[in-house]
Design a binder for these strands. Structure first.
Lengths: 150, 150
DNA sequence: CTAGTTGCAAACGGTTTGCACGAGC
DNA sequence: GCTCGTGCAAACCGTTTGCAACTAG
């Protein structure tokens, strides 16, 4: 999340033939530096703090550029709620159905499992997403965990 | 997919306090017996063949009942395209970005990986979905596989 | 008979798009 | 200065909902 991200962001846009506008830089800085898997709305509200006139359309257009450049992934764990993830290596997402947070988790087995599936089904894998839904540690400790809809 | 599914479907509805209408039975028979992970649209078109006056609203309402009963899972691998899966045990979905088909794949490692994540993060898992995106065997053999957007 | 269900059409919410003004390079 | 990017508002599209007519039990 430090400023040294900026030069490489600018380079990324220019190299792909895009102009490095203040909006694009701000959006990229935020999304690439975030670990909370924000929605477009969340990005919009965040960027608005420093760029009050930004529009949701610009958020979506910039996110699309980052997606096409392979810098972020799209998560669709809930229907009607697309979230974004700057971590593009194989990893799992633990979605808490109570508080909505998504935590990352990685394990060396994961790439092996991907290879195995790929070999077994003769399938060329270009992307993966291991989703786990349930109740996170914090929410379980607060006494929740019973009345959820999986 | 045989007719012996029907009595248990009727029982399921009645036990949950729902009426077993012809529409609900037809929709359930199709969704529970399908291995192609249909969208609501697909279900609608299919049911329309035998029940021409059925509405999309009824499809959605019936699917919700099946979901709440834990008989089917919801898949959101593409944004804006919810599909349904009558296989509720932990398994992987291989989505072909070329032809759109989704194949199932299971491996004994999967439940172990879920347990490991659960233990490592102190997370109570109630559902899982392992997504792999790429190119399926058939499409790869037809010479595709290069110009895809992951 | 009567509460629950259906089909219709309108509402909804997230995402995309057309367009005229404005800004990067 | 020429082109690309932005903000706005309208369009889109899958899903949900309100309602009057209908039907399962």
């Amino acid at each position: 999340m430090e400023d040294d991200l900026e030069p490489s962001i600018i380079k990324t846009f220019r190299n792909s033939g895009y102009k490095a506008t203040p909006q694009r830089i701000a959006i990229s800085r935020y999304v690439l530096g975030s670990d909370e898997h924000p929605t477009a709305q969340k990005v919009y509200l965040e960027i608005k703090k420093t760029h009050p006139t930004v529009s949701l359309a610009t958020i979506y257009r910039t996110i699309k550029i980052l997606k096409d450049a392979g810098l972020i992934l799209e998560l669709n764990m809930h229907q009607g709620e697309t979230r974004f993830d700057p971590v593009t290596e194989p990893h799992a997402h633990l979605l808490c159905l109570r508080c909505g947070r998504i935590d990352d988790w990685t394990d060396p087995i994961m790439p092996k499992l991907i290879d195995k599936a790929s070999a077994a089904e003769n399938f060329i894998v270009t992307g993966s997403n291991f989703e786990l839904k349930g109740i996170c540690d914090g929410c379980a400790k607060m006494g929740y965990g019973a009345d959820i809809t999986p």
